[in-house]
Design a protein around this nucleic acid. Structure first.
Lengths: 218, 218
DNA sequence: TGTACATCAGTGAACGCGCGTTCACTGATGTAC
DNA sequence: TGTACATCAGTGAACGCGCGTTCACTGATGTAC
């Protein structure tokens, strides 16, 4: 007998995959509210679980936010991958350029269509350790083979441009910093910053000139 | 006789310039703690005043943060101005390029040496109204003549490059978005983002390649 | 195959914290006459 | 030149809020024998 609590069919006491459910709930909250919305209590509420059940899966709030942030970063990488795959240009040189353009556009598209996730992806980075430089290419993404983070995707496109002869090899070092800065900066200015209320048409101008600058400048 | 309260020489009941004192206190807190540290109570504490005295000068917390943010933005503009004035190149064309480089470097320098102010300058922008596009050039800076905000400083440099024949006129529209994006993006990545722990030497590479990209790409 | 018991995953109540904001107030200032 | 009074700028106590975290607990699971 018992549990006349809700109409929900007797949810088992043990959730089975609460960790994943919590991250999913956090993702949902982050989507509309950004990193500020990924609160331990709010996430537990969303997952319909007592608020300290979370402590069985995460040491503290920071660790939860970190896990959600990683997923946001992965979502960004996924969109970049998708948009790259959609490039239909055949000719190798043109294709290399088009692919670089595509990941740049995808980056900005993600920031604009999923501002909450975008902000969470980068907010969560704050809490991680000094670590070494290798972090960029290695960490932030689980070791599951074949998955690349945004930085790695960009590096690959730049390598390709060199391989194809479109970018002189001596310009390759540091190129990811410049290219990344352009799309990241524009994304921040558009999502959060002073360009937030730019009219739609002007936004298009901004995106196009910014990406053109990258293509010309490399 | 009275006020054996502190050893401080009888502070008058009326402060005289509490508004400015509060902004100054907020600036001091923002410097080390960023916008999160600009709390109504903390600021009042810092100014050694009861925490609701602030309500005589600001409608609410947002307005206070806005005022502090404006000052941060002004500090950024001031550094950009100083660094421009330090340019020693005579030849007009070279000078125009050097000045653009200088304000870009100043922007990144500010973000790195005053990360708290940098973040506050842009965090406070969030709370302002949709407004129109003209906002960018007009608002954010008091009407006191002769003071330009960062965006206006950048525009002026770009205009100069066109005037001097270094940048084709048809490339001028939208150019501030690209240039701004580069320095803003790099600043964010270095201060807050995944490039936070980049070794010093690598940071130099990043700054140099990013600014070179702007110069080549325009 | 059945039972004892350690272990794991969840619950519920409570603590302390510092915030923004409001209320009723008091002390100082300046203006009208 | 002096006094009454409105106005302004500050004070101090209080409210409600939601957070992260801790504590002692209970219900379910799986393993040893």
């Amino acid at each position: 007998m018992a549990t006349a609590r809700t109409s929900a069919a007797a949810r088992p006491y043990h959730h089975g995959s609460l960790r994943e459910a919590l991250v999913e709930a956090g993702l949902s909250l982050a989507r509309t509210g950004g990193p500020e919305a990924v609160l331990l209590r709010a996430v537990s509420r969303e997952a319909v679980v007592s608020h300290n059940a979370a402590y069985r899966h995460f040491a503290d709030h920071d660790e939860l936010l970190g896990a959600v942030g990683e997923r946001c970063m992965r979502n960004l990488a996924l969109l970049m991958g998708t948009r790259t795959d959609e490039v239909r240009v055949r000719q190798p040189v043109k294709r290399a350029r088009a692919e670089l353009d595509a990941i740049g556009r995808a980056y900005i598209e993600f920031a604009q269509t999923e501002p909450g996730w975008f902000r969470t992806a980068f907010a969560a980075v704050k809490s991680d350790q000094p670590g070494d430089h290798a972090q960029l290419s290695a960490a932030e993404t689980p070791p599951s083979a074949g998955e690349l983070n945004p930085y790695q995707l960009l590096s690959a496109r730049l390598d390709r441009l060199v391989a194809v002869g479109e970018v002189p090899a001596e310009r390759r070092p540091g190129a990811e910093y410049s290219a990344w800065s352009v799309v990241h900066g524009l994304s921040c200015l558009l999502v959060d910053g002073p360009l937030r209320y730019l009219p739609r048409a002007e936004i298009e101008v901004a995106i196009n000139t910014a990406l053109a600058l990258v293509q010309r400048g490399l």
